[in-house]
């Protein structure tokens, strides 16, 4: 028997993560409280949900090879464009230790936003609304992190791109392809963009 549902747990956790992002460089203690509360809500749901269902909600399923390949290719193409737009060489060189952190963060963001949040939203809402809500939550989280030190135009661009890619990745997930193509996209993108960078201020 499925556990009692917590209708507000996923939106509340998403809101807390957005607050966490904003408060990181404003009020660190409160930011960590928000993160702890958000993770506590997610953990509670995972704890109370049977393993089989929680892995399904998180999107842990074998994806079609073509979708996985598309995720990898799109991640690579997007990263190449990002490097070109930033005036950096196409190939990252030399590689730095931060690449391990960057790909871990990319994978984790996908597990949280396209995995947990989108999975929970898909359980209760129509796919279009669920995909849009998860993309919006991800874009808000990313934008909130940069609010203290980024110009408005840049924030709008960051939020818009994150939302747009969130819609695409969410669509893959909603078509029952699981979370792994999204993870592949984000990992390849972060690897190619950040492999030659030292740790940015907004990570540590």
């Amino acid at each position: 028997m499925p556990p009692r549902s917590f209708p507000s747990s996923a939106p509340s956790a998403a809101a807390l993560l957005v607050l966490f992002g904003y408060l990181l460089h404003v009020n660190k203690a409160t930011a960590l409280v928000c993160l702890a509360a958000g993770l506590a809500l997610i953990s509670t749901w995972i704890w109370k949900t049977p393993l089989e269902r929680s892995t399904r909600v998180l999107g842990f399923k074998r994806p079609p090879a073509r979708v996985m390949t598309a995720g990898l290719a799109l991640g690579l193409a997007t990263a190449a464009y990002a490097r070109w737009a930033q005036g950096r060489p196409l190939f990252p060189c030399p590689l730095r230790a931060f690449l391990f952190i960057s790909i871990s963060i990319g994978a984790t963001e996908e597990l949280v936003f396209r995995g947990f949040f989108l999975g929970r939203f898909l359980d209760r809402w129509r796919p279009v609304a669920a995909v849009a809500a998860a993309a919006l939550a991800h874009a808000a989280y990313k934008t909130a992190i940069f609010v203290p030190s980024t110009a408005l135009a840049e924030l709008a661009l960051l939020g818009g791109l994150t939302f747009a890619f969130g819609l695409l990745l969410g669509w893959w997930r909603a078509r029952n392809h699981g979370v792994w193509p999204c993870v592949a996209f984000h990992v390849v993108f972060d690897f190619w963009v950040y492999a030659d960078r030292t740790t940015p201020w907004w990570v540590w």
Binding site: L17, F20, G21, L24, K28, L32, L35, L39, I42, S43, I46, W47, L51, S54, I101, S104, I105, A107, T108, E109, L111, V112, I145, P200, W201, W202, V203, W204
Partner: peptide
């Protein structure tokens, strides 16, 4: 070095695995 940025989100995967491990 301060661990004070978005890297905190990395707590999620080990937390999830720990819960599943204990539950199992």
């Amino acid at each position: 070095k301060f661990c004070m940025g978005s890297g905190w989100l990395l707590l999620f995967p080990p937390l999830m695995l720990a819960i599943w491990f204990v539950k199992t």
